[in-house]
């Protein structure tokens, strides 16, 4: 497992579950919300439960899904980057 020391913290946000397993997240102070799809809603939920590093998120998803670690990690890395870009997460190295 690749070590990652960055800790991610969710911004306070209003959330609404949408159809087809999508999640609307509208952070405080932002003019509009962002719709999360794919694995992002699950990652967002894990972050809200105190699972705050990439390694821990990957470990949690390995328990849930049958994909290989490489596949899951690639998805988590991309999703975390998207969430940071959307200003929904703060990453603390």
């Amino acid at each position: 497992m690749t070590a990652s020391s960055t800790t991610y913290r969710r911004r306070n946000a209003a959330e609404r579950r949408l159809t087809s397993n999508r999640l609307l997240v509208h952070a405080v102070g932002e003019p509009a919300g962002t719709i999360l799809g794919g694995s992002a809603p699950v990652i967002w939920e894990l972050l809200g439960q105190g699972v705050t590093t990439e390694d821990d998120i990957v470990a949690a998803l390995l328990v849930r899904y049958s994909d290989t670690e490489d596949v899951i990690r690639a998805g988590v890395t991309a999703a975390l980057a998207d969430l940071v870009r959307a200003d929904l997460l703060e990453g603390v190295p």
Binding site: E15, H26, I35
Partner: peptide, 10 residues
């Protein structure tokens, strides 16, 4: 639903 939830979240 996407629209009304965006509005409700605002």
């Amino acid at each position: 639903h996407d629209e009304v939830m965006a509005s409700s979240a605002r």
